[in-house]
Design a protein around this nucleic acid. Structure first.
Lengths: 290, 290
DNA sequence: GCTTCCTGTCTACATTATAAGACATTTCGC
DNA sequence: GCGAAATGTCTTATAATGTAGACAGGAAGC
C-alpha cells in the first residue's frame, strides 16, 4: 500500500528492470545481477537499487532469496494483443465489437495547427475532438484522440461515438473512406494518459498518427493513438519480392489464406509482456453521459 | 550542460506542459499562464514551475520574454527519418550505403530462449550475435541486435558485418531470404542502449523484432532493433479495399508511383519532437576494430 | 567447517528538491 | 510618466532523496 511517490532514480531503475523482465530479456527463473553490481551498472547506490527491487517484489515480478540472490518469477509473460499491420483499422473495427470504450471527452474545438494542416482545413475551421480509451476485458490498452471536421462530425452523436468505431460512423454517414497515411513512433506517458491507461508516468507508449482521406483528397479523420506496448503491438508478415539486384520486402496483403505452419513460427519478442495491471489512483468517473 | 535529472514535481509539470504544447492544446504563439498562476494551479511553488519552464525553454518549446510572459514557440517540429513500412528492410539496405555503422559486439553465443525458439534451433545450437549501431550524419538512430545460426554466420567475417548490411551478406552467401515476420512495440532505454544511442536512461524507444526464414522455413536471422523515435519512425500508406460489409485497409505495396499531391498531405504527428540530442556522458570508444 | 557471495537492516551524512519570500528589471497599457 | 504584471535573481529554511559504510545472517560450494 505504501506506494508513495517514488523517488526519481529509484523509479527509473524500477521501470527499466521491469521492462527487461517483462519483455523476456531477463528470462523467468534466472538470477539477476546482485544488488551491488546493479548499483555499479546504473551508477547509483545500493540503497536506491533496493528501493527499485522492493517495488518489483511488491509487483510480484521477482523473488528475493537471502543468500542466493534475486530471481525473476516465472509466468509473467502475457502476449499483447497483436494487430496485423496490413490490417490495423479493420482489426480495430472488429475489436470495437468485443471490447469496451470509455468516452473521456467530446467537444468541438479549434484544432491544433498540425491537425488542421494534416486534414487540409480552411483557416478557422473547427473540428470535433473526441478522446476515447479502449478496453479489453476491462483493462485499458489504447488512448485515442480523433479530430473530425465539424461538418462531418455533426452526422453522428456523442452516444454513437461511445458505442461504435468512428470509421463505421463515418461510412454510415455516407463518407467514403479511401486512403490513409499513418506513422508509428514511441513516447512516454504523461499524467493524463498514464491515468487513463492505468500506467505510471514515464511508461513507454506506442504512438500512431493516422490521417484518413476521402476519394477527393479531403481529410476526414485525424487520429492520434497511444497504445500500451504490453497489451498491444503491431505485427506483420513480409515476403521478399523482385529481382536479384533490387529485392524488396512487401507486406503480405492477405493474411487470410491460412498458413498451417505459421503456428510454429511464433515470435516471442520483447513485446510479450505481462498481465499485471497495477492501477493508479483511478478517479475516472467521466463517462459517456447522455 | 548541467542537465541533471529532473526532480519529481518539476518533471511532472514539465511533462504536462510539454504534452499540452505538443498536441496543440497550447497553440504556437500563445501566451501561457504566468508563473504565479501556474504555481497556484498545480499547487506547487513558483521555483518548481520555473524549473519546468527552464526545461521547456532548453527544449526550445517555449520563449520567455521578461515583462511580457512565456510563449509557445512556433514551428518546433523536426521530422524524423521516415521508413516506409511496406519496405522497411530494403529501406535499411539502401541506408546501409549512405549511413555509418558501428560494430559494438561480435561473438558466438548461446542464444536466449526466445531467440532459439523463434529461429527453430536445436537445443544447444549456438548463434552468432552482433550488436550494431547505425548512424546518420554521425548521429546514432538505431541499435541492432542480430542472431544468426552459427553455421550461417561463419560465411562472412566480422569486417564484412561492419561494412555491409546483414541481409546482403546472407544473400551473397547463397542463402535465399524468403519470408519474414515482425512486430513493433515500444520500450525504455537502459544504460547500454542509452549510451549507444546518446540518450538518457528512460527515454522511449521504438522496438522492432523480426525473424527471417529461408524457403524451407528455416530461420536465418533474428533481429531485435531499437530506434530513437525522434530520429526514426515508420510510415505507411493504406488503401481501403473490399466490399461494403467487410472493408479493410491494405498497405500500398509500391510507393513508387509518384503521387504529386501527396506533398500537401504532410503528417506532422506527435512523433515530431524536439531536435535536441541531449547527449549523455558518452564514452563510445568501441569501434569496428579489425 | 570454512569461505564467499548474496540479501536484510541499520546508522550517519551529503545532496538535491521544494517552499516562501524579497526585490530588481522589463514590457505594456493607461 | 505611471503602475500593473510579468520574468529574472537572489535569499533562507525545510523536507525529501540519495550515498556510504558497517554488520548480521542465509545459501551454496569447497
Amino acid at each position: 500500500m505504501a506506494d508513495a511517490v517514488e523517488p526519481l532514480k529509484a523509479r527509473r531503475i524500477y521501470l527499466l528492470l521491469r521492462e527487461r523482465i517483462l519483455n523476456g530479456e531477463l528470462e523467468p527463473g534466472s538470477r539477476l545481477p546482485g544488488e551491488l553490481s546493479l548499483a555499479a551498472d546504473y551508477g547509483i547506490s545500493r540503497v536506491t537499487v533496493r528501493r527499485a527491487l522492493d517495488t518489483l517484489a511488491s509487483d510480484g515480478l521477482i523473488d528475493r532469496r537471502p543468500g542466493s540472490g534475486t530471481f525473476v518469477r516465472e509466468g509473467n509473460s502475457v502476449q499483447p494483443i497483436v494487430a496485423d499491420l496490413s490490417n490495423v483499422l479493420s482489426h480495430l473495427v472488429e475489436m470495437g465489437r468485443r471490447t469496451g470504450v470509455r468516452l473521456l471527452s467530446f467537444a468541438y474545438v479549434n484544432p491544433p495547427e498540425s491537425v488542421a494542416v494534416s486534414l487540409g482545413l480552411e483557416p478557422g475551421e473547427r473540428t470535433q475532438r473526441s478522446i476515447r480509451v479502449r478496453l479489453i476485458d476491462g483493462a485499458p490498452f489504447s488512448y485515442l484522440v480523433t479530430h473530425v471536421p465539424e461538418r462531418i462530425g455533426v452526422t453522428y452523436s456523442e452516444a454513437d461515438l461511445a458505442s461504435m468505431p468512428l470509421l463505421g460512423l463515418l461510412e454510415r454517414s455516407g463518407i467514403v473512406v479511401d486512403e490513409a497515411s499513418q506513422s508509428i513512433g514511441a513516447t512516454l506517458a504523461g499524467p493524463d494518459i498514464a491515468e487513463a491507461l492505468e500506467l505510471e508516468i514515464g511508461s513507454p507508449l506506442l504512438s500512431l498518427t493516422r490521417v484518413v482521406w476521402d476519394p477527393s483528397g479531403q481529410g476526414v479523420e485525424h487520429l492520434h493513438a497511444l497504445y500500451r506496448p504490453d497489451r498491444y503491438s503491431f505485427h506483420m508478415d513480409l515476403v521478399r519480392t523482385g529481382a536479384a539486384g533490387a529485392r524488396r520486402w512487401n507486406p503480405v496483403a492477405k493474411p487470410v489464406i491460412a498458413r498451417p505452419e505459421s503456428s510454429k513460427r511464433k515470435i516471442k519478442g520483447p513485446e510479450s509482456l505481462k498481465p499485471k495491471p497495477r492501477p493508479m489512483r483511478v478517479s475516472n468517473q467521466r463517462r459517456t453521459s447522455t
